[in-house]
């Protein structure tokens, strides 16, 4: 009974809330408006925006030494999570069945295991850094912790459900993923989409000035 609810109505509700919520947040940002810049541009805003969207994937040398742990953990977690999300066999099957109607090659089982270990290690290190480092401890709020814990639980139950021997574990994983999807638009998890906008706005402004940001 509860399984059917998680597999059916709750899934459709959560994915709908996620899509509408994300679109609503992005539209709200754009609707906040931006006055046209009347100064004479030295360079191109468009190419500045595109450059910043990609160049910020590579950290500046000035922060690579002291923030090394955070940067490495950040890459481990984010790359790991993306691989797990889009290239784990159960996810490929699920997305093909429920959303796209077609599938694509998944990573081998051993890659899944290694990637999951990297992603877990990255997430745990980032969270430990958040609570132990004086700077991140000062900055962090409840939303940051809820986001970290939700992702951790979704990943953990996902690994537990991997064997696919217990339907209840799969449902628990799906249920947490649905909670995650519903929480997503209301939280800092939105940075997964808005980082393109923030990098783009800054890159455009700096690009007009002729500065590679």
């Amino acid at each position: 009974m509860i399984g059917e609810f998680i597999d059916g109505p709750l899934w459709y509700f959560s994915i709908t809330a996620f899509v509408i919520g994300v679109v609503w947040r992005i539209v709200a940002i754009v609707r906040a408006g931006l006055k046209p810049d009347l100064s004479i541009a030295r360079g191109s805003a468009g190419s500045g925006a595109v450059r910043a969207i990609f160049s910020r994937f590579v950290p500046e040398r000035t922060v690579t030494t002291r923030s090394r742990l955070q940067l490495i953990a950040g890459y481990m977690f984010h790359v790991g999570l993306l691989v797990l999300l889009f290239f784990a066999q159960p996810h490929v099957d699920f997305i093909a069945e429920r959303i796209t109607g077609f599938d694509w090659p998944a990573v081998p089982h051993w890659v899944f295991i290694v990637t999951a270990e990297f992603a877990f290690a990255g997430l745990i290190l980032l969270w430990l850094h958040r609570v132990l480092n004086p700077v991140t401890r000062l900055l962090s709020d409840l939303d940051d912790h809820i986001g970290s814990i939700l992702v951790f639980l979704v990943m953990l139950t996902g690994c537990l459900a991997l064997a696919q021997s217990h339907e209840s574990l799969r449902l628990l994983h799906l249920f947490l993923a649905e909670v995650f999807l519903i929480y997503f638009p209301f939280s800092k998890l939105m940075h997964a989409f808005t980082f393109v906008m923030s990098r783009g706005y800054t890159g455009a402004t700096m690009g007009r000035k002729g500065v590679n940001a």
């Binding site: 947040r25 709200a28 940002i29 754009v30 609707r31 906040a32 408006g33 931006l34 006055k35 950290p59 500046e60 000035t62 922060v63 002291r66 923030s67 955070q70 940067l71 950040g74 958040r130 480092n133 700077v135 991140t136 900055l139 962090s140 709020d141 940051d144 800092k188 939105m190 940075h191 808005t194 980082f195 906008m197 923030s198 706005y201 800054t202 402004t205």
Partner: peptide
């Protein structure tokens, strides 16, 4: 509070990396 600021505040994940770029820190 314009679109730029709204996008910035929506994106910040409190990583604190900016601290290492500030001479006051």
């Amino acid at each position: 509070i314009d679109a730029r600021i709204s996008s910035y505040l929506s994106s910040c994940v409190h990583c604190g990396i900016c601290a290492e770029a500030c001479l006051f820190y």
